[in-house]
């Protein structure tokens, strides 16, 4: 086994185990959130092995850092205790979740079998230059639409939070 392959299995095992840890720890919200961080960081390691350096760093910065910190912020702000999650609730949700998860797994297996051999990577693939050039030339319209969407989300959150607008 080559060293990158070994690293891949380490990160993959870490990602799967911590994802399981998150699902099984659902009563202890903070522990679940911390497991999610480990999953995100392990995925970032896999992205590095795939030469997607920018995505890896952004994964740690945005998902590993900012988003889960916001989860924790809300959890701590509400100060949820384990008995806030009554057992037996949302059984239908669990079933739907399991079905959707299986469907996703089937799709991933199907497309990775169908993909065949990978083409060689272009020079500088996955660096911030290439991603930046792609985002601001070929996909500039989508970037602008996404920014509009985010602005709408911020305005919406403000309206929800601030009932009385003066």
């Amino acid at each position: 086994m080559t060293f990158p392959a070994f690293l891949f299995y380490v990160f993959a095992a870490l990602a799967v185990l911590s994802a399981l840890g998150m699902v099984l720890n659902v009563r202890n919200t903070v522990a679940a959130a911390m497991s999610l961080v480990v999953t995100m960081v392990a995925l970032a390691g896999i992205y590095v092995l795939l030469e997607a350096h920018l995505v890896a760093v952004v994964q740690v910065m945005v998902y590993g850092g900012a988003i889960v910190v916001l989860f924790l912020f809300v959890v701590m702000l509400l100060n949820l205790r384990s008995d806030d999650f009554a057992p037996g609730r949302a059984r239908l949700q669990k079933l739907a979740g399991a079905l959707l998860g299986l469907a996703l797994l089937a799709q991933v297996v199907r497309s990775s079998v169908a993909f065949g051999a990978f083409p060689p990577l272009p020079d500088g693939f996955g660096g911030y230059r290439q991603v930046g050039i792609a985002l601001y030339t070929d996909y500039v319209l989508l970037v602008e639409v996404a920014s509009l969407l985010l602005t709408a989300a911020i305005v919406g959150a403000l309206i929800l939070a601030k009932r009385k607008i003066d």
Binding site: V57, V60, M61, G65, V69
Partner: peptide, 22 residues
């Protein structure tokens, strides 16, 4: 000396939050 050195520092900085929060 990675190509994305400064981003690495930002990523590390965002992980550092967890020690405090935990």
């Amino acid at each position: 000396n990675p190509d994305w050195g400064l981003l690495y520092i930002f990523a590390i900085g965002s992980i550092a939050t967890y020690g405090t929060v935990m």
